[in-house]
Amino acid sequence: MLDLFAYGDAGWGDEILQGLAITIQLAIATLPVGLVLGFMAAFASLSRLWPLRALGFGYTTVMRGLPEILTLFVVYNGAGLLLNMAVKWWNPEASGTDFSPFAAGVIALGLVFGAYAGEVLRGAFQSLDNGQVEAGRAIGMSKSQIFRRIQLPQVWRFALPGLGNLWINMLKDTALVSVIALDDLMRMTKVAVGVTKQPFTFYLVACLLYWAMCVLSEVVLARMERRANRGVRRAA
């Protein structure tokens, strides 16, 4: 049993660990993309201009209503088509290029993360005490100073639990990229199953690895929350 997961040519340990590394890379690469999109969506929906508000609302509503796998296919196939069109337009003789599944995964998962994060961040901005912003203005802070020194640290504290949940969801959603042929944990497991004919064993191991990542994330997030909330008096 254990020799199935041996490291090296004999077992599948190294292949599965490689897949795990791709999964982790994908999740870590998606996080900044999703956070930037989330902040943009939150600013848009809190904007004074109605077209921006409509845009923010439309983006978060549509993205949250679509299955993640559909978003992934739209990005993968759609961006592939656009890329091909652009290449053909640039250089008609060029042969078709393939859109990288990794990039498609980052964009699609980032779009989904951004939509949910937009809502979380909007809620966090709205729960800030307005008096503090006014106080900042009263002592002559500039807008960016108020944002950096007063709003951001507290938005972080309010948004952390929600963003933590989103991180865990995104970590699980990375499994979808195996469908568009990226060699992540799920796909390497599938390859191993194809050879060894032991589907239950291998998928169980994949599940346990995802589970371990999620539990680890939860532990780290609980610590980050405790750190973000240091100095906050607890209501009795």
């Binding site: 499994a175 497991t189 199953v193």
Partner: peptide, 23 residues
């Protein structure tokens, strides 16, 4: 509950659909 919430649904689906073949 922790297992169901900590693993991708796709993995759970594969575990049942393909995994049942082992038995």
């Amino acid at each position: 509950i922790s297992f169901m919430r900590g693993t991708p649904i796709l993995a759970q689906l594969f575990l049942i659909y393909y995994g049942s073949g082992q038995f």
